[in-house]
Structure formats: structure tokens, C-alpha cells
């Protein structure tokens, strides 16, 4: 296969970027998309040009490092597939593809197709810990977990924090991500002790990072390589209503700083 790639090239966070067109020859349909980019980069290195920077690690769809838009679709055209697991057989010989990094003010571009996703880390960090016992394995039946809860927690825990939800959302909202992280712990008995506190802290952190809000387009759900469902955002809303509207002896509501969400960055 021969392809033409229109790739976003940007030297650094503070330099303006532009699209540059590269032909790629002799692509095998069995290559993954990233392997195809490796081939291009080797050619660029031989020619003495700067290779295209893209993030990757596991290349098996579980670490969440990879991701950019291919022709306006996060992780490319295959549903439920990260770009590292996307194969060139999903494309046609002669295709012209546009590769563009995630665009959101909370995810500044670092270089070419790489963005800084540490905003996600700060949301996770604000959630704190759960008070589950560690050490020797606990008795398996000591805490009974309803089947529905464990299934839901598993579905939510599938999130790899790649950022495709933010990238695909017309509002650059991080609600699918945050809702998956909250659902994952909030549906389990082990997550109950810190539940309301975690909810308020993570939602406040999400707003502080300058992500948008949800207008229920469901683009995130269609974009998610791990098929996290939109209903988790509905759940997160209920977690927030409960966390803030229930009477608390601790000053939980004061965590929400005045004007925080409106602080446009």
C-alpha cells in the first residue's frame, strides 16, 4: 500500500505548528498504524529530517499512551480500538490521511502529535486513596460485592486515560474520563468510606483544569477505545448531587472554590 499523510508538525509547546505532507510507500496491511509511522520515521532519519513524535508504550491497547486523530476520528476509524491496535488493513491503498493531536486547552501540545495529559493525573491524584486493607490477601467472602457492582466497576476500570473522550468532545469535556474513575470506586463497597469526599475533590479538580462541560453529544462514548458508556456521566452527576446536597458534618461543599469552573485558561 502507498499512502499520503498530512501530519501536524510542531517543534515545541510555544512554537506555532503546521501540517506537512509525507508520502509513505510499501506499507503492509498487517502493520499497525504506529509501525507504519515507524517506517516513515526511519525514512525521515535517513534523510536527516526530524522524525514525527508520537506517544506510545505498550502497543497492545492497555497503557493509554498512544492517540491522535486520523481524518478527524480519535484513534482512527475502528470502534473500540486504540491507534496502536489499529491495522493498516483498515485503510485503502492511495488513502490520504490527516493526523492531528488532541486539541484542548487542558492538553497543550508538547511536540507534533504529543500532548501533555498531566491534567488527568491531577484529577486522579485529587481523588486520594481508598482505605482497603493491603498486606496478606483478605478472606474472599469478607466483603460481599454484588455482581452488578463488580461488572460495572470492571467496565469503568477499563478506562486507560488516553484522552480520546476529551479530544472527541465538541466541548473538550473530561466527563467520560472522570465519571469512569469515579464509578470504578464508587460502585464498590470498598469505595464507600471516602465516596462523597472523592467525588467532590475529583469534580472540583476536573473543573479547575479548564475542561469543558457535558452537553450530551455522546461523541466521547463513540470515541472511547475501551467502550466506556455515556451512562457513567449520568451516574457521576448523581454522585455529585448526593455528595453536595446531603448534610455533612465536614465542610465538604467548601471545597468548591468560588468561580473555579468559569476560570477560562
Amino acid at each position: 500500500m502507498n499512502l499520503t499523510l498530512r501530519i501536524w508538525r510542531q517543534k515545541g509547546a510555544n512554537t506555532p505548528g503546521e501540517f506537512v505532507t509525507y508520502p509513505v510507500h510499501n506499507v503492509s496491511p498487517d502493520m499497525s498504524f504506529l509501525e507504519m509511522l515507524d517506517v516513515l520515521n526511519e525514512e525521515l532519519i535517513v534523510r536527516g529530517e526530524e522524525p514525527v513524535s508520537f506517544e506510545h508504550d505498550c502497543r497492545e491497547g492497555i497503557c493509554g499512551s498512544c492517540g491522535f486523530l486520523i481524518d478527524g476520528m480519535t484513534h482512527g476509524p475502528r470502534r473500540g480500538t486504540t491507534v496502536c491496535q489499529l491495522h493498516m488493513r483498515s485503510f485503502q491503498d492511495g488513502d490520504e490521511l490527516t493526523l492531528e493531536p488532541w486539541r484542548a486547552s487542558a492538553f497543550p501540545v508538547l511536540k507534533d502529535l504529543i500532548v501533555d495529559r498531566s491534567a488527568f493525573d491531577r484529577i486522579i491524584q485529587s481523588g486520594g486513596f481508598i482505605s482497603a486493607p493491603t498486606g496478606s490477601a483478605p478472606e474472599a467472602n469478607a466483603i460481599l460485592v454484588p455482581k452488578e457492582s463488580s461488572d460495572t466497576a470492571f467496565d469503568a476500570a477499563a478506562c486507560i486515560a488516553c484522552g480520546a473522550c476529551v479530544a472527541a468532545c465538541p466541548n473538550a469535556s473530561a466527563m467520560l474520563f472522570t465519571s469512569a474513575k469515579l464509578t470504578h470506586l464508587n460502585v464498590l463497597p470498598q469505595g464507600q468510606p471516602e465516596r462523597d469526599e472523592r467525588t467532590v475533590n475529583m469534580v472540583a479538580a476536573m473543573d479547575r483544569e479548564g475542561f469543558g462541560s457535558c452537553t450530551n453529544h455522546a461523541e466521547c462514548e463513540a470515541a472511547c477505545p475501551k467502550l466506556i458508556p455515556l451512562e457513567f456521566i449520568a451516574r457521576m452527576n448523581r454522585y455529585v448531587y448526593r455528595a453536595l446536597l446531603r448534610p455533612h458534618r465536614h465542610p465538604l461543599a467548601e471545597r468548591i472554590a468560588p468561580g473555579a469552573p468559569s476560570r477560562a485558561r
Binding site: 492531528e100 484542548a104 465538541p170 469543558g212 453529544h217 468559569s262 477560562a264
Partner: peptide, 23 residues
């Protein structure tokens, strides 16, 4: 109005190519 302002600020630069899949 408030949410729209937040949402516009959250994506100051739009995509060159963007496909809607669900909306």
C-alpha cells in the same frame, strides 16, 4: 451562557478535520 463560555475556552483551537460520530 456560563457553560458555553467555559466550553469555548476549553477548545480554543478547532480541528482541521473533525468527524462527528454520534451527535
Amino acid at each position: 451562557v456560563e457553560l458555553t463560555r467555559i466550553n469555548w475556552a476549553a477548545r480554543p483551537r478547532s480541528y482541521a478535520v473533525k468527524r462527528s460520530l454520534a451527535t
